[in-house]
Simulated assay, not measured.
Amino acid sequence: MIDISRHKKLISGLNLKNIKILVAGAGGLGSTVLNNLVRLGFENIIIYDPKMIDPPDLNRQILYNQEDLYQNKAFTALKKLKKINPNCNIKAIDKALSSHFNEKVDIAFDCMDNIEGRLVLEKICKKLQIPMIHGAVQEFSGQVTVIVPGITTSLLDIYEGFDIPKTPQVFPPTVLVTASIQVSEAIKILKDDFKNALINKILFFNLLYNDFEILQLI
């Protein structure tokens, strides 16, 4: 069991063992989100990722190393997370997330790298009436927002008109910062701290210029 005594007061009010989390994508964002979640003390996690670990992934996907190359990301993440906290109840699925997903979860993380998958996750969150923590990266820039069905603007509206690169270049620290902010936002949402969360707001940052900006969406 992981010792959370050094941060327990900072997340007081959360019964971590009763919270179930869906993480869609176990790559750069996903592996950092998962790492943070388990070290915070969350135990019930479902991971979806159909992809294998390739050599270029190792520069930013912090759960993996050379021994993990060409293995499925979801299954490998499960093994690594169990080493951090053996009490974790983690379910790994080596398939793309489907709109048929119907398990009871409390919150979902968008850690994918394509808009099609993100929109599938948004539909699932709308169906289940749960919040989604969106994160995306490109080069030195990252963005984070919280999508709550019936309360916030949709992800489709946010992305309308944007030209999204198929294989964007990514500065590795950008991934770590974005994923960490995603987890921080999830803690706020789970504690019902909507006042301080990115509700109908989106955070943009650029590490090259040290620019951080929050824009109102509606």
Rank of each mutant, 00 (worst) to 15 (best):
L14F: 02
K73H: 14
R118G: 01
M52I: 14
L121D: 02
Q66G: 02
D113R: 06
N210P: 06
F171P: 00
G28D: 09
V23E: 01
E213L: 14
D163W: 08
L69D: 03
D113C: 02
F75C: 05
Q216K: 15
M112G: 07
E67R: 13
D193P: 02
M132V: 08
V38S: 02
I115Y: 07
H134N: 11
K104A: 07
G161L: 09
S5D: 09
N89I: 13
L198G: 00
A74S: 13
T152C: 11
K166E: 15
D94V: 12
K104Y: 13
I46Y: 05
D193H: 13
K126C: 10
D54E: 15
I4R: 10
D157R: 14
F171A: 07
K195V: 12
E116H: 07
L22P: 02
T32K: 08
A179G: 02
T174Y: 07
L217R: 11
D57V: 10
A186Y: 05
A108T: 10
L155M: 13
F194A: 03
S141Q: 15
L29M: 12
I4L: 05
V148W: 04
A26Y: 05
L156K: 15
T152P: 06
E213G: 02
K82F: 06
V146F: 00
L14E: 04
I124L: 06
